[in-house]
Design a protein around this nucleic acid. Structure first.
Lengths: 188, 188
DNA sequence: GGGTCCAGCCTAGTCGCCCTAGGCAAAAAA
DNA sequence: TTTTTTGCCTAGGGCGACTAGGCTGGACCC
């Protein structure tokens, strides 16, 4: 019998693409097996279980996102860097809704510590160097930034902004202006 | 055979409480039936299907949250109102993680239009009256506010802030200060 | 009080998914 | 070539979503 050449990496990538097409909640071990022309039981040689698969997709997504943010950030500083970061983040979420959804599962601490989430956090802090914030304001500002980005993207995707005609692109741009303003003048 | 007295309302409430205890993703029709000492098939007389149940829980949660925000807001204005709104929002999400998770499913437009989400939106706009913002800045500001609240709560819950020792309560308070500052001085 | 109706429960059964156990053949190693 | 490992298979159990069809307790009507 010809072997399908399944590996954990190929499974993870296929799961990520499937997630972007049909939604993460519909990515099942059985559906994935079908894509490879293989029985579902066979996949358990490569992944531990369904949760393991989701974690792998989340880690892939975190790493891809960190890469995109990193290259968007190259050579920029201040508001320029803030906007580049934010746009890279939102663009990734819009292009890859399934991967973005996968990123939201909570990883156990050691997995999270070994993930690209760390690079992500470092880049966020790097942006704030342009705004000269000392601790603990810096941590608070990082958290606010991240909250704004994630909250906006998440509400946009679940239709939380649909009831108003205003363009979400415009609102996004103005939100970034506001964020820049408050970071430049962080209240005591 | 003694009747269990199941109604759609009681099912919805029980599902909401179950969600807060074991997580929305574990609220199944079968589990709910067990709580009522009834077979799962029997529940289909009261709810259309599993999705219908989730929508009912979401609507219940939206309505409860709108009530709490409304009473928190009574008699307040300006930053006072902003903080009261935000704290009511976050407190609800922390007390009722399952209900909060249920709120995130996307409702079809007409259901959403008939939901308490509308009251919620009105109250958000009411807060902004204290900051004297005209359209379209008002809409942008509403979106930013909502993004910040939802993003913060959501990241806090999925452990996105765990890698830094800083108290999340403190960060939350400072984030609200920052939001107040930027709303008071919205960039042109 | 007896008959009718039907809401509210039931059993039985289908299907899809998750996962384990054990078998067999192809590919790789010895 | 022989042995080992690897990658797939079939079979099967458990659980959840949902449908079809049957029984019954209680409300209403005469």
């Amino acid at each position: 019998m010809a072997r399908a050449g399944v590996t954990a990496e190929r499974l993870t990538l296929a799961a990520a693409e499937l997630a972007d097409e049909i939604g993460m909640e519909n990515v099942t071990v059985a559906a994935l097996a079908r894509q490879f022309g293989v029985k579902d039981a066979s996949l358990y040689f490569h992944i531990r279980n369904a949760h393991d698969l989701r974690v792998r997709v989340a880690l892939l997504a975190l790493s891809e996102l960190a890469d995109r943010v990193a290259s968007a950030l190259a050579g920029r500083a201040g508001k320029d860097a803030l906007v580049a970061f934010a746009n890279a983040y939102r663009a990734y979420a819009m292009e890859h809704p399934g991967r973005y959804a996968a990123m939201q599962i909570d990883l156990d601490p050691e997995t999270a510590a070994a993930s690209a989430g760390v690079r992500h956090a470092e880049m966020t802090r790097a942006i704030l160097r342009g705004y000269r914030l000392a601790e603990p304001d810096q941590t608070d500002a990082v958290r606010m930034m991240h909250s704004t980005f994630h909250g906006f993207v998440s509400l946009e995707k679940t239709g939380g902004f649909r009831h108003t005609p205003r363009s979400t692109d415009e609102s996004w741009a103005r939100t970034l202006d506001a964020l820049d303003a408050v970071l430049s003048n962080w209240p005591a």
